[in-house]
Design a protein around this nucleic acid. Structure first.
Length: 727
DNA sequence: AGCACGCCGACT
DNA sequence: GTCGGCGTGCTC
């Protein structure tokens, strides 16, 4: 539908505030805007960036109308993006302005990059030549453009040398063109050496990318089967067609490893997009994506809201990863929204995982997605030999958590000069502290979960809400001194046990609360990769993406952990996590071993991992959910909850928010991904129920359901996402 | 979501 | 007598 846009006096504008409809703004006579134009508008006392909408605005008093201040000098968002905003708003029950806000996350990028002043050679030659001048002229020949201080530094001279040359007309002032954020990737840079399986799978994906148009392919291949190289074939095809490519990665996996693999294949790095990108870089990436200067973006979930002009392919790597879910403000699953974006814009979507989620498997089984499987590990990367250690038959020594079998294997591995990884998904020293005299258990005053002892810090922490207190000497209940006992293991405690068995081995603990933050963590990981540790004890952050080249033993301290928390996804999650962790071994070419300590070696999760028969596990899981009245998908009932005031409604929302994600099982409320929306009069709150809800919260919700809507104003809780109908 | 306005408690 | 807490309402 092409038509000349008539002069509009008033246009609808999506402002980043939670209103149901766009606001109306007057368009000054000398201004032209189209739907998608990014504009600066006055809103109350401030000026903010907003998007001209194609949806009708609500009625407004003409006296309130204010004019658009300016149109930003950047390309308007394409219609596809506007439809994407509207779709997400509707699906997630979020005000459209709040969704639009996600497209405006790089405010400074809305204006063109400030021009950078540089200098360039002229035809003139200097009157006298000196050593310093010679160096400057030599360096100036290299590179694509120099700033005055840049050239001086590169030539190792002071800026006055350059000023002298400039005074003679040897250099002149110019404005440097904006520098591309990354080099152009070359699809033919290096032809990969693929196995027969990879070639077959790669051909399917390449065809999808070449043909274009919407379609979803689930690329399912065990760790080390070379999934990445396979979807790179599709990426190459899209680049050849001159289209843009978005590769989504779980946040933690934005590691050097991926970027380097990409560079090996394409000769240049992809543009990165994630939360700790420096602001400058962020702006440049945003702008160059909008101007179709960037071919490939590798990013975390927020990259989904970059203003691509000509997207030709979306890849979601590790599609099962829970970090694709955003749980604040706008609640969405980036994996699902990637499929939606592909659908709206007519792009192929590749979902890749070694352990696909149940819902993606189900969608593939139903024929909604195409499925391509890579059965074997590639080349020299042999699978580790996997086994369970039955803790009933091989119990740890009193007060310990390592079975003799595991200790023996650690010893052997260490003697061979190889590395061991001990995995326990629990931070701190002990998950429960109690008083041996009176039985007092340390509980969080705010949310009633056990306080976890962190011995290195001397604190008791609530892992649920972040509450912290100093670890006391005496029992706060009966006053007894020295009778507090730690129950159960955390990584710190395992480290203690490791030191007692292997005092001469170099051991290290890695968890997200490591003192020194992310930077320290990165350093430690590098040190481990260089072989500077013998025994690594870590939480789930060691499961992702790092290559420990000398690792030949993975011991899972408590493989049962997480199976009994009532989460309907418990088995699936445990399976995914343990597969990933044991996959850390066996990348060396050497013989390697993965051992799962468990009290239930016959549990389907253990059997699936040990036997490698994942197909049976998936079938069983799907059937299990159906039996429990939790089909993998399905529309869920709404719940009416009453609240008299905004404060009360907010209180409910906060309470739900704090305890919802990843907690114990929700049966009344249905499967894991159900988003709840609380709507109280004009106030509206949402949250995503990920793992399920704790029993006390279920009771709370049930009570509210019974209470029914309040005549004074109500909070409505809705749970009605239906993944089957999300297209 | 921000931000202003407004009404009650501890301070220069 | 004011500073500042957050409860309430509004933004085209």
């Amino acid at each position: 539908m092409k038509q000349d846009s008539p002069r509009q006096a008033v246009v609808p504008v999506l402002v980043p505030v939670p209103t149901e409809t766009p606001y109306s703004y007057a368009v000054p006579d000398d201004m032209t805007v189209v739907p998608g134009s990014i504009v600066r508008v006055p809103l109350g006392p401030r000026e903010i960036a907003a998007i001209v909408s194609d949806q009708p605005a609500g009625a407004v008093d003409a006296r309130k109308l204010r004019p658009i201040s300016a149109v930003f000098d950047c390309p308007p968002l394409p219609g596809e993006s506007l439809r994407f905003i509207a779709w997400i708003a509707q699906y997630t029950m979020t005000p459209p302005g709040m969704v639009a806000r996600m497209f405006l996350r790089a405010p400074a990028a809305l204006d063109p990059e400030p021009p950078v002043n540089g200098i360039a050679r002229t035809e003139c030659l200097p009157d006298r030549m000196t050593a310093a001048r010679g160096r400057v002229l030599e360096i100036a020949e290299t590179g694509s453009g120099w700033t005055r201080p840049g050239l001086a530094r590169a030539a190792g001279v002071s800026a006055s040398v350059i000023d002298g040359l400039k005074a003679q007309g040897v250099f002149e002032d110019i404005v440097l063109p904006p520098q591309p954020v990354v080099a152009e990737p070359d699809p033919a840079f290096k032809q990969p050496d693929l196995s027969a399986d990879q070639i077959g799978a790669g051909r399917v994906l390449r065809d999808m990318a070449e043909k274009g148009g919407f379609g979803v392919c689930l690329l399912d291949g065990v760790t080390g089967s070379g999934k990445t190289e396979v979807y790179f074939e599709a990426v190459a095809a899209a680049i050849r067609q001159g289209r843009q490519v978005l590769i989504l990665l779980p946040e933690i996996a934005l590691t050097h490893a991926f970027l380097e693999r990409f560079q090996d294949r394409f000769g240049a790095k992809p543009a990165e997009w994630h939360s700790d990108l420096p602001p400058r870089m962020r702006e440049r990436v945003w702008r160059q994506v909008a101007e179709n200067q960037v071919r490939v973006v590798a990013g975390a979930r927020s990259a989904l809201f970059l203003p691509f002009r000509d997207l030709g392919l979306i890849v979601v790597d590790e599609e099962h990863d829970p970090s694709y879910k955003q749980e604040d403000r706008v609640f969405y699953s980036a994996r699902d929204m990637a499929v939606v974006r592909g659908h709206l814009g007519g792009h192929p979507v590749v979902l890749a995982s070694a352990t696909p989620s149940i819902e993606s498997r189900y969608n593939a089984q139903q024929g909604r997605y195409r499925r391509v499987a890579l059965p074997a590990r590639f080349a020299e990367a042999a699978l580790p030999e996997l086994g369970t250690v039955d803790l009933r038959r091989n119990p740890p020594a009193r007060g310990g958590f390592l079975s003799p079998v595991l200790i023996d294997e650690i010893a052997k591995t260490w003697r061979r000069g190889e590395q061991s990884l001990l995995f326990l998904n629990r931070r701190g020293y002990a998950p429960l502290t109690l008083c041996r005299v009176c039985g007092h258990r340390f509980q969080c005053p705010d949310c009633s979960s056990w306080l976890v002892e962190h011995r290195f810090r001397g604190q008791l922490l609530c892992h649920q809400c972040g509450y912290a207190e100093q670890r006391p000497e005496a029992c706060p209940s009966c006053g007894a001194l020295d009778h507090l006992v730690a129950c159960g293991p955390g990584v710190e405690r395992i480290a203690e046990e490791v030191v007692s068995h292997f005092p001469d081995a170099r051991s290290i603990v890695l968890s997200s609360d490591l003192a020194g933050g992310v930077r320290r963590l990165r350093l430690e990981l590098e040190a481990i990769e260089k072989g500077e540790a013998d025994i690594v004890i870590g939480t789930q952050l060691v499961a992702k993406g790092h290559n420990f080249p000398n690792l030949t033993l993975v011991g899972v301290i408590d493989a049962d952990l997480g199976l009994a928390n009532g989460d309907p996804r418990a088995a699936e999650r445990t399976f995914q996590l343990l597969s990933q962790v044991t996959g850390r071994a066996g990348r060396t070419g050497k013989k390697s071993l993965g051992l799962l300590q468990t009290y239930q070696p016959d549990h389907p999760v253990m059997r699936a991992i040990v036997s490698g028969d994942w197909e049976t596990f998936y079938e069983r899981e799907t059937a299990e959910r159906e039996r429990a009245g939790l089909p993998p998908f399905g529309r869920l009932a709404g719940i009416i909850v009453s609240a008299a005031t905004r404060a009360e409604a907010e209180g409910h929302a906060r309470a739900l928010r704090r305890v919802a994600p990843g907690d114990a099982g929700i049966v009344v409320l249905g499967p894991a991904e159900a988003p709840l929306s609380l709507v109280a009069g004009r106030y509206r709150f949402r949250l995503m129920v990920q793992g399920g809800l704790r029993a006390d919260l279920q009771a709370f919700l049930r009570a509210m359901v019974k209470a029914g809507p309040s005549p004074r104003g109500s909070v409505r809780v809705q749970i009605d996402i239906d993944p089957q109908s999300f297209l």
